[in-house]
Design a protein around this nucleic acid. Structure first.
Ligand SMILES: [Mn+2]
Ligand SMILES: [Mn+2]
Ligand SMILES: [Zn+2]
Ligand SMILES: [Zn+2]
Lengths: 156, 156
DNA sequence: ATTCTTATTGCAAGTGAGTTGCAACATGGA
DNA sequence: TCCATGTTGCAACTCACTTGCAATAAGAAT
């Protein structure tokens, strides 16, 4: 099981939201040194980050930054709907992955053979969400769709 | 946060697959006393079961049945594609929920206010899966879609 | 600039889901 | 009935994540 291809740009880069730090400040959240580092790393991330990776990257900017602060910052961002939490089919254990929320939702494909993670946007996805909201009168705040299977490269 | 309504029948009851025990036997899996109990409970379940609930129910039939066996049986069923693993938006901590896989996929709606879990089937969901398989040449083995939000009852 | 309130941090300890090694045991085919 | 091999229970473990608390820092008020 390898890793995802380097050349595909994350949806969070193509469809970015407003600056995360500004977004937090405008909501009256205290902008600490630690949060500034973490939020910046999340926003610029080249891939879906787990807590340990995010912590390691953060420590290279402030070696005293504690892992607990990473968890607490991610909770904060989740609570404000600014990051999405992913399972990526729990391909690498029980941990979770995080990405800045984009202007348009997308879903994730995880190859069970090589471990590649792909993103997919579709108007059918948007239509499906609309159908749920209408037919069930359910107000969607967060959606998570993931598919596990075999990618094109692994099928040959 | 309450619990899901009693009157909605689980998709696993409406669209059941072949008997889980028979399915395992036909695949050359040893049918132990413990597996028979667990598989029967999963098949007849009135709601999405977490490990602890499944274990408690199993112990009322065999008080020596160990929790590790529950985990190992669920892994086995997952490996054979006979159960689906759900997060239900991790509304109650990090644990997972399980249900027998049905003939037709469905998605889950989790009310962030009252904790109700609803199921939803849609041809748009099927179309979306088809689009992924075609456009990405990705062979889907398992899909998981969950939405968190506010249910009709909580919206009033 | 200085003070002050209060949210946030780091640390250490704890929780809880899920895993693993191994000896005893049960399954199902010979 | 016997036997080879897969499965179980137990205890100990790992790992992701949480919590209590004293020290600290943000940022609003002065
Ligand atoms: Mn999960
Ligand atoms: Mn993504
Ligand atoms: Zn692959
Ligand atoms: Zn509700």
């Amino acid at each position: 099981m390898g890793t995802q291809p380097k050349h595909t740009m994350l949806a969070a880069q193509r469809n970015p939201r407003r600056n995360l730090a500004e977004e937090l400040i405008s909501r009256g959240v205290r902008m600490t040194h630690q949060r500034r580092i973490l939020v910046d790393l999340i926003q610029r991330a080249d891939r879906h980050l787990d807590v340990l990776t995010l912590w390691r990257r953060a420590r290279s900017r402030d070696s005293t930054l504690n892992k607990v602060t990473v968890y607490r910052t991610l909770s904060l961002l989740k609570k404000h709907g600014l990051v999405d939490e992913l399972d990526l089919m729990h391909l690498e254990g029980e941990k979770h992955f995080y990405e800045a929320r984009t202007t348009r939702d997308h879903l994730h494909l995880a190859c069970l053979k090589c471990g590649a993670i792909m993103e997919f946007e579709s108007s059918l996805f948007e239509k499906l969400k609309g159908q749920i909201e209408r037919e069930r009168r359910f107000s969607i705040q967060v959606v998570r769709m993931e598919a596990g299977g075999i990618c094109a490269a692994c099928r040959g």
